[in-house]
Amino acid sequence: MDTNLIFFSLFAVVAAIQFLYWVVVFSRFAFKKPHESQQADLLPPVSVVVVGRNEAENFKKNLPAILNQDYPRFEVVAVNDQSSDESEDVIEKLQLEYPNLKLVKVPENDKFWNGKKFGLALGIKATEHEHLLLTDADCYPSSPDWIKEMISGFMGGKELVLGYGDVEKTGGFINALSRFETMQTALQYFAWSFWGMTYMGVGRNLAYRKSLWFEQNGFIKHIHIPSGDDDLFVNAAAKVGKVGRVAKNTAHTITESKTTWKNWIKQKRRHFSTSSLYKPHQLVLLGTFGSSMLAFWPAFILALIFTDGTLQHLVLGLAGLRLIYQYTIGFMASRFFGHKDVVALWPIYELIWVLSGMYLHLVNAWKGKPKGWK
């Protein structure tokens, strides 16, 4: 086999894998119609659980936006997880104004489970209702209809509802990268869920039935891992046909992005620490996509250099076609996620994201998985 054909074949294989993911897998979500919301008075009562440690300012800023949701029957369970700041005082003052706000305290004790799971478990056990909606103290809902939109996802006998945890647009490279990473991750977990492989969700915006949590014995399957109260729980609990998906822009929760590379890497290290515990077939499918994404541009450059004539034209055509379809999926997905400015520079952020993922895996392997969640 001559050099022309070798490098063209290498590129063609990588491009074919990419087309399979973008054309088949991701389009299943990107071209979906938005989920239809139900009338709030026809929906069940809800318990919203918010966990925070040393989040006094965020409790003060974000809890009112949750407590003022346009929903007839709901409670908010705010968990103060061993805070040393004024979190407890902030919640107690809000209780004077909002009778549906409940405070759960996690006392300081080194014997408690490392991470967020103990506080979240106490919060869930303190809830009154079957339908749970979870978020974090540093998040606020994108609209007064957040609860209604997310709980509409339970219709049809669903047990678990995936939501989207957005990142606030501010400015700068780290913010843009954070918004891209959030979109790319959500595109994958929403799309794969439509194909029956629900492998993760985000604790910033996640709903499930309380009975499902007890059926799974809470977080006991991965209690030794500080993280994973969201993705590892979803990975274990999700059943085909029992998962709802709500990505409408009125159903988001929003958080501020990290402002420095160091803080962003620290956050992503925690997230990456759980992905190695996914099911083997999930790791293969997700890993194949990431590997082919990383290999695409080097294979393209090599194919351009070492091919000529018709094969070189085919290389350019395949690269252009992949780029067109990638942009199509990105802009269609932005109907749900927003951030069209990031989609416009998708190839650049894509390469940085994949390289960052490799770096994070290497750092976690070298330094060990992060301990704690704050």
Results as ranks from 00 to 15, higher is better:
residue 236 A to L: 07
residue 11 F to W: 02
residue 77 V to F: 01
residue 229 D to W: 01
residue 353 W to V: 13
residue 266 K to H: 07
residue 323 L to R: 02
residue 195 W to I: 06
residue 266 K to C: 02
residue 296 F to P: 04
residue 371 K to E: 05
residue 128 E to S: 15
residue 17 I to G: 01
residue 362 L to M: 07
residue 44 P to A: 09
residue 105 K to G: 04
residue 163 G to T: 05
residue 235 N to T: 13
residue 107 P to N: 12
residue 202 V to M: 11
residue 213 W to F: 11
residue 124 I to N: 05
residue 133 L to P: 05
residue 178 S to L: 04
residue 361 H to E: 00
residue 61 K to Q: 10
residue 114 N to Q: 10
residue 268 K to M: 12
residue 290 G to H: 06
residue 322 R to G: 11
residue 263 N to M: 09
residue 284 V to D: 01
residue 219 F to V: 15
residue 296 F to D: 01
residue 198 T to V: 09
residue 364 N to Q: 06
residue 208 Y to D: 07
residue 212 L to V: 15
residue 72 P to M: 11
residue 172 G to C: 07
residue 371 K to T: 14
residue 124 I to D: 02
residue 283 L to Q: 07
residue 203 G to S: 13
residue 191 A to R: 09
residue 4 N to L: 05
residue 225 I to A: 02
residue 298 P to R: 10
residue 200 M to G: 03
residue 102 K to C: 04
residue 83 S to D: 05
residue 172 G to L: 05
residue 204 R to P: 06
residue 229 D to A: 13
residue 343 V to P: 03
residue 364 N to A: 08
residue 5 L to H: 07
residue 49 V to S: 05
residue 188 Q to L: 10
residue 4 N to C: 08
residue 73 R to D: 09
residue 217 N to C: 12
residue 193 S to I: 10
residue 130 E to A: 14
residue 101 L to R: 03
residue 335 R to C: 07
residue 124 I to S: 04
residue 155 M to S: 09
residue 40 A to R: 08
residue 109 N to Q: 09
residue 59 F to T: 15
residue 206 L to G: 08
residue 330 G to Y: 02
residue 284 V to K: 03
residue 111 K to C: 02
residue 314 L to N: 09
residue 188 Q to K: 11
residue 156 G to R: 04
residue 155 M to Q: 10
residue 49 V to R: 02
residue 94 L to Y: 04
residue 27 S to L: 07
residue 137 A to F: 00
residue 372 G to A: 06
residue 301 I to S: 01
residue 364 N to Y: 04
residue 41 D to Q: 13
residue 162 L to W: 06
residue 293 M to P: 00
residue 140 Y to E: 01
residue 373 W to T: 15
residue 34 P to E: 08
residue 101 L to P: 03
residue 82 Q to C: 12
residue 66 I to F: 08
residue 82 Q to Y: 00
residue 91 I to C: 04
residue 129 H to L: 14
residue 80 N to W: 00
residue 345 L to P: 10
residue 142 S to P: 04
residue 222 H to V: 14
residue 176 A to V: 11
residue 243 V to N: 03
residue 91 I to L: 03
residue 310 T to Y: 12
residue 216 Q to K: 15
residue 188 Q to G: 05
residue 353 W to P: 14
residue 7 F to N: 14
residue 367 K to V: 06
residue 168 E to L: 13
residue 331 F to G: 06
residue 159 E to F: 00
residue 7 F to I: 15
residue 119 G to I: 11
residue 332 M to A: 15
residue 340 K to F: 03
residue 144 P to E: 05
residue 195 W to M: 15
residue 5 L to A: 14
residue 254 I to R: 08
residue 117 K to N: 12
residue 16 A to Q: 07
residue 87 S to F: 00
residue 171 G to K: 13
residue 83 S to I: 08
residue 281 H to E: 02
residue 312 Q to T: 07
residue 283 L to S: 05
residue 244 G to S: 13
residue 187 L to I: 12
residue 63 L to R: 08
residue 60 K to Q: 10
residue 112 F to D: 10
residue 1 M to R: 04
residue 111 K to D: 01
residue 305 I to K: 04
